[in-house]
Design a protein around this nucleic acid. Structure first.
Length: 476
DNA sequence: GTTGCCGGGGT
DNA sequence: ACCCCGGCAAC
């Protein structure tokens, strides 16, 4: 061993030179991380500037219809009116965006999706139009009559599509079922007050990213029920996105709430109106794939109910023993339950996975924050999981041991606490918060062995310096 | 470019 | 536990 060390040391000079050269070489080429991150961010940033792709989907539909009508070589359709003009204005850009953001996009998807939402009349329009393409000549005879009907249909279709757009862009809170409205009335003040400290209470819990995950392509109510703008918001500074969470096929409950076919049009119109009024691409879409649940925080309980009233009653009767006063609430129950926002995926998977930090809810690729998912729950339950800052920084100045061999001390030896440098950091009860978590220790200003003795006297260095560790001899 | 030293690997 | 070193960041 000694011989090896001497041999190594004898060649240290050249080694260092080569090492230095290697360092220079290493610096020259772009580092993998730095080389990759900026483009990614730029890409995301660029993507963020774009419009909601939901509109692209709809525009695409519009274009398709337009082409078909053009193929008929016929008179202008009724869609050339105001609404169509607006849509057409962004048609070109929309196509480009569609190609970039929906490489696997299929028009058929839109057709099928829309067909599920549209009345039969509109759905027939698509199919009949395809037939028209094939039998255009034969249709010319009936063209005048056909277009009269077409115009009427187109008006309706345009209306429907506008609704689709609106539903894509935003899901208005007004689409709550009466049950939810009641629940909100009962709990709104309570929830808002208890959560007032959290800015995430009413913020969009999830910036649905899901559109790229394929769920939106799986047919069903796709474009309308999923907001797709969120998928590129994963890189946004906002921690509200949950990019890894796909937009789920809604559970039966939430689906019924938001997408009941029998739902009157005014509900959609209301959403559209709100969209038109506010015209904000960012805050749109309260995720209808999220479901608010209420979880009992009583120890060893964890019961989850869908309504605040229910959870209050549960707490009153089960935990507080107020069986006879179920209608009376002094607010004490508020302390024992919390509201949790659940992706209906999780709900569908079963309430057993309701842990607020359930993996199914976490794990955005680059945004670990989950506050948007569980606003107040984090306050209620994670405090026991908080990292103790004491474990973050190793003792430095407080436990300096001026011995060249401090670095060699085995923790098993009977030595003053902290003599082992960071190796015994866990024994520290207090340490200066001079080093933030994950940050390097500030570079020492004093001279180190290297400077004092020079490379030629490396034998005189302290062990730590020889090992390229923090100098143990000249400590700042 | 130099220096200090962290993080991690080898023995 | 000891030893070494790549690589990073402060200088």
């Amino acid at each position: 061993m000694q011989a090896r060390r001497l041999a190594k040391r004898s060649s240290m000079g050249s080694r260092r030179l080569s090492a230095a050269a290697a360092q220079v070489d290493a610096v020259r080429p772009p580092k993998p991380e730095s080389a990759w991150r900026p483009p990614r961010r730029e890409g995301s940033a660029a993507a963020l500037e774009e419009e909601d792709e939901d509109e692209d989907v709809v525009v695409e539909v519009e274009e398709e219809e337009e082409e078909e009508e053009g193929g008929l070589g016929s008179a202008p359709s009724a869609l050339t009116g105001h609404g169509k003009g607006l849509l057409r204005g962004s048609l070109k850009a929309a196509n480009i965006k569609r190609e970039m953001t929906f490489p696997a996009f299929q028009q058929e998807d839109v057709k099928s999706d829309i067909s599920q939402k549209l009345p039969d009349q509109q759905f027939l329009l698509f199919t009949t139009k395809e037939e028209d393409l094939k039998t255009a000549e034969t249709k010319k005879l009936n063209r005048a009559h056909e277009y009269e009907k077409e115009n009427t249909r187109s008006v309706c279709l345009l209306e429907q599509k506008r609704k689709v757009v609106s539903s894509n862009i935003d899901v208005p809170p007004a689409r709550k079922s009466s049950e939810e409205l009641d629940m909100d009335k009962v709990t709104a003040a309570m929830v808002l007050t208890s959560l007032s400290t959290s800015p995430l209470v009413r913020s969009p819990p999830v910036r649905p990213n899901e559109s790229l995950n394929g769920s939106w392509k799986e047919g069903g109510f796709v474009p309308s029920s999923t907001s797709s703008s969120g998928y590129w918001s994963w890189n946004a500074p906002s921690d509200q996105s949950n990019p890894s969470t796909p937009s789920p096929p809604l559970s039966a409950d939430s689906f019924k709430t938001f997408r009941t076919p029998s739902q009157p049009d005014d509900g959609i119109d209301e959403g559209e109106t709100s969209n038109l009024l506010f015209d904000e691409p960012i805050p749109r879409k309260r995720k209808n794939s999220m479901k608010v649940m209420f979880k009992c925080l009583w120890k060893n309980c964890g019961k989850v109910l869908s309504t605040a009233a229910g959870i209050q009653k549960h707490i009153r009767t089960i935990h507080l023993g107020r069986i006879g006063e179920s209608d009376y609430s002094d607010g004490e129950e508020d302390f024992y339950y919390t509201e949790i926002r659940l992706n209906t995926d999780s709900v569908a998977d079963g309430l057993s996975s309701l842990s607020p930090v359930s993996p199914s809810l976490a794990s955005p690729p680059s945004f670990p924050t989950q506050d948007a998912i569980r606003p107040e729950t984090s306050c209620a339950k994670t405090e026991t999981k908080l990292m103790t800052p004491l474990s973050r920084s190793a003792p430095t100045n407080l436990y300096l041991v001026h011995t060249d061999h401090a670095y060699q001390v085995s923790p098993t030896h009977n030595r003053p606490a902290g003599s082992g440098e960071q190796k015994q950091s866990h024994t520290v009860l207090s340490s200066p918060p001079r080093v933030a978590f994950g940050l390097r220790k500030p570079r020492g200003e004093g001279k180190k062995c290297r400077k004092v003795y020079g490379m030629e006297n490396r034998d005189m260095w302290c062990t730590a310096c020889r090992w390229k560790k923090a100098c143990q001899r000249f400590i700042d």
